[in-house]
């Protein structure tokens, strides 16, 4: 794709997000679009948000489970950018009608970094050393593409389908919890919806953060001290509507909740 088209696609997705109006999948319209093109489109979308005043506060890793990889027919994760206007505190109301289009909730572990991580060559031990704390988190994913009809290029271009995220109120030192076996329980409207464990995301959430540091390192980009990194869902995505109440509990870490209005 040429630069002009990449800019046009990035602008289109930015407008779709701001106006809460979905667009047709890029892969339906541009059959030769590559994942590389898509990352450039996502950067254009990000530039527009930064121009409008948003501040980058971290990154999210997506496509970390076998199920989603199989669905999108890929063998690696993807990533998107988190901005200050996307973060909500646990227990607060999230107004779907103002912020989202077709949201789905997923339970995750969020990492807050205290040191920069520069790949390549970042190991799991480096990730733990660079992590200030981990928190329970809901990522509310959302697609700017009609009916979530996404291929990998569509979701990468659309900021990895990120909507917003809700951080829990307990933070734990990653040295004090086994992030591979920690269990997750997700409840929707008071009933248990799903359970999972840390290993659901690439074998361990720590693997996910190392993957991101090493992938970005190839482009000379580092993860920065103070950034929040969403490491990938540990349970299946769940569509949500106004009125739904969701809660996630993670063994040894804590809980987060969100009420959709």
């Amino acid at each position: 794709m040429d630069k002009k088209l990449i800019t046009a696609c990035g602008d289109e997705l930015y407008e779709a997000m701001v106006n809460r109006k979905t667009v047709a999948p890029l892969t339906d319209r541009y059959s030769d679009i590559t994942i590389d093109d898509s990352y450039h489109i996502s950067l254009r979308m990000l530039d527009r948000r930064v121009e409008a005043g948003a501040k980058i506060i971290g990154k999210k890793i997506g496509v970390t489970s076998k199920a989603v990889m199989n669905m999108l027919n890929v063998h690696q994760p993807d990533f998107g950018y988190l901005t200050d206007d996307m973060v909500y505190a646990s227990g607060t109301e999230v107004p779907i009608s103002e912020q989202l289009i077709q949201p789905r909730a997923e339970g995750e572990i969020a990492f807050i970094l205290k040191r920069d991580l520069c790949g390549p060559g970042v190991t799991n031990a480096d990730v733990i050393r660079a992590t200030e704390c981990v928190l329970p988190c809901f990522e509310i994913v959302d697609s700017r593409v009609h009916d979530w009809k996404i291929k990998i290029q569509d979701t990468v271009a659309d900021n990895a389908s990120c909507g917003l995220f809700v951080l829990g109120d307990s933070a734990v030192d990653p040295r004090k919890v086994d992030l591979t076996t920690c269990g997750m329980v997700v409840e929707k409207n008071g009933a248990i919806l799903s359970t999972g464990a840390g290993a659901a995301a690439l074998g361990s959430p720590v693997n996910c953060v190392a993957w991101l540091a090493n992938t970005l390192g190839e482009f000379g980009i580092s993860l920065k001290a103070g950034e929040v990194i969403l490491s990938g869902s540990l349970v299946p995505l769940e569509p949500v509507v106004a009125g739904d109440f969701m809660r996630v509990d993670i063994g040894g870490i804590g809980s987060a909740s969100v009420r959709f209005v």
Partner: peptide, 16 residues
Amino acid sequence: TTGVVMEKNGAVVELG
């Protein structure tokens, strides 16, 4: 919230 990870021949097959 106690998590469980089942591996068969080294690959994760079930979690909960």
